[in-house]
Design a protein around this nucleic acid. Sequence first.
DNA 1: TCGCAGGTGGTCG
DNA 2: CGACCACCTGCG
Length: 311
Amino acid sequence: MGGELIKQEFHNVSDFGLDDIFDCGQCFRWNKETDGSWSGIVEGAFANISFRPVRGEDTGTVIIWSNLYAADPERREKYWSNYLDLDRDYSAIKRILGTEDVVMQKAIKASPGIRILNQNKWETLISFIISQNNNIPRIKNCIESLCRAYGHRIGKLKGSSIFSFPAIEDIIALEENDLDVCRLGYRARYITETAKQVARDGGAFLENAENVPTAEIAAYLEGLTGVGAKVANCIMLFSMKKTEVFPIDVWMRRVMSRFYGMGEDNISAIADYAERNFGNYGGIAQQYLFNYIRKLKDTNPAVYERFGFEK
DNA sequence: TCGCAGGTGGTCG
DNA sequence: CGACCACCTGCG
């Protein structure tokens, strides 16, 4: 590994579940270890995160082993606290979302440990371009392949090399068919085009996006090749703290039609419903619902199939 | 084996 | 502006 691993702990953390956080489709470079911890690559560094609950499942200690900002304890603590969204009061959000919404109460109960990660903007942008019309195992394979081909070798783990996510410069330096090895399909062109567009201002807009109004960011992102409303919302939610956006994908359309009695292809009506009922926490509501319907399909396909509309 | 996957861009009325 | 439809690829 590049640099030794240093331990960072956060105590008395509640509303926190590793599987809920890392397996809810918001990130693609984290993998579960046999001991239940999760390992991932973040900002060109390696990390392993485990959670030790105390007093049942309510609160516990988050334990992070990483070589990120090894020489700067203050920066390191700030980074991870922000990355894991530890300053946000999820109990309060759950109360707000669950009020007079039985479906949401069930969804929250199914994945009580969800937290929205605050990830690198560029990596999130490219990752969600790759995610379109694609399935999660292949999305992960595509991203690893991209990192292996054009990221930088940052060390070795369990006998195999690990790589950082390629920087903007790494992508704009590519020639016509360089991405073929990554098997990205038609998304390859979207990525090279988007990289050029983002590089026009040296990546400044993306870097400062958190301070820009949501509508303005959305307009910028949807101007990028391969970025539509859904991908733009995912980028804003998972890397820019815009918790009010509500990404609508096939799963959300299924949830809204099965559990909320809405037309499956009436996207604008679904968006209106989310805005009115989930308000500033639409994105968090979306994550509870997304995990709920996906888990239901995996754990109880029969119920998933015949689940009619209930309200 | 083959439909489908956390959609988007282009085209046509 | 809304309703199609093609699109790389490989998982389940």
